[in-house]
Design a protein around this nucleic acid. Structure first.
Length: 99
DNA sequence: GAATTGACTTAAT
DNA sequence: AATTAAGCCAATT
């Protein structure tokens, strides 16, 4: 467990409530490493605390889903259950629910 | 320590 | 709208 990862997980958990989403880039910015968005993706990929740490609420900057470690349908399912809808692989009303 | 590898993003075709 | 190229950062090899 690296510090960078801990920072990602704790920040994500406390800043992004159910029903909302954020992007890799925004999360990176929150932990004061504005350009580490790619590394944030890697951290999410390895998330040992899923779904306690809501890594499914982290998506691409353009409203695409981004990736998911196990299978992408699970990510969609978790989001839908929280009231975040997905259509054609894109987040619905992305601008309004993205932190 | 160098090289490689991603759940990335932006800008340019 | 779709593809390509080039930067970026941490972890892993």
């Amino acid at each position: 467990m690296t510090e960078f990862q801990q920072l990602c997980y704790t920040t994500l958990t406390e800043k992004v409530p159910a029903g909302k989403v954020t992007t890799y880039g925004k999360l990176a910015k929150l932990i004061n490493r504005p350009n580490a968005y790619r590394a944030v993706g890697s951290a999410m990929n390895k998330n040992p605390f899923a779904p306690e740490v809501p890594c499914h609420r982290v998506v691409s900057v353009n409203g695409d889903l981004g990736g998911f470690a196990y299978n992408i349908n699970l990510k969609i399912k978790r989001l839908q259950e929280e009231g975040v809808f997905v259509e054609n692989g894109k987040i619905v009303n992305f601008q309004q629910i993205c932190i």
